[in-house]
Design a protein around this nucleic acid. Structure first.
Lengths: 152, 152
DNA sequence: TATTGTTATACTCTATAACTATA
DNA sequence: TATAGTTATAGAGTATAACAATA
């Protein structure tokens, strides 16, 4: 994450009406902060949060096709291609043409992919634990509940 | 649905462990959903959420300089230039060289800028009200509180 | 020397259309 | 006809470096 960018939480003399008290704006600022922290944590693996989500999903669901990954993660088919290309180039997963439907690629993690997924999952759990400490256990659970409603 | 499909994973049957139960992931999905809804609402004004934030901040704080906008909103000076260029080209605000410090531009909304800000603020209120209905009044307030902690 | 606004540049993420090979 | 993967491309958003004018 960028460390020299202004964070914008210092100037208390400005009138932030219409921004600070709105879910739309605070959700964006919070997401940027949390995403940036996770990006920093994953740097040791040269993995970005979006790549982690793909590894996690395929690790959970071997032989998943690219289309199904896209539906599950809410991304475009065309944009997944490059992500899979890079993870495959790095030897973290493999494409195999499906026997049942030769249009589809079955995706599977390699042993290196499983190792990277295990390490990144540790980092994610550390990250979530830090969030939990700043929100309190009740706040963490309540935030999950409320965010879940927004995603629907 | 083909009943002979062997290990095809239906979308509802996917294992989303490590994604759905994590604040990092749900925060991202929720932010994308909410940001997209606000983007749709603002379309009638040909205004994007980031431009709205700039108009809102300058409307609240006349004569603000570009650097101060950047600190308040957490964006880069270099990236604000184009945003201000476009809003100025559309006649929504004006730059004036500061008397006190001739390096700085004082930013001020035009009457058109105030009109667009007023209308977009109405749209934002409608958007936030819809969020409030889906979360409940208590949930909405609690979400604001929790997101505020994450932004710190 | 430091800061403000600016230009240039690059990289990521996202969105759409069109192609191919399969179904 | 429809779908899976792919290519190409364009638009946002964001990051860094460097420069001129000014402090």
């Amino acid at each position: 994450m960028n460390t020299t960018a202004p964070r914008g939480n210092a100037d208390e003399l400005l009138d932030l009406t219409g921004l600070n008290g709105k879910v739309g704006y605070l959700l964006r600022r919070a997401q940027i902060a949390v995403h940036g922290e996770f990006t920093d944590l994953l740097r040791e693996l040269k993995l970005r949060p979006g790549q982690f989500a793909v590894l996690r999903l395929i690790g959970n669901n071997p032989k998943l096709t690219q289309s199904k990954v896209c539906v599950a993660l809410g991304i475009q088919r065309a944009n997944l291609v490059g992500v899979i290309d890079e993870l495959e180039r790095r030897g973290l997963l493999g494409r195999t043409t499906s026997d049942a439907d030769r249009r589809s690629n079955c995706l599977q993690l390699t042993s290196d992919g499983h190792r990277v997924l295990a390490r990144s999952t540790e980092l994610q759990e550390r990250h979530e634990a830090a969030i939990g400490r700043s929100l309190g256990a009740g706040g963490y659970a309540e935030l999950l509940r409320l965010l879940g409603k927004l995603v629907d």
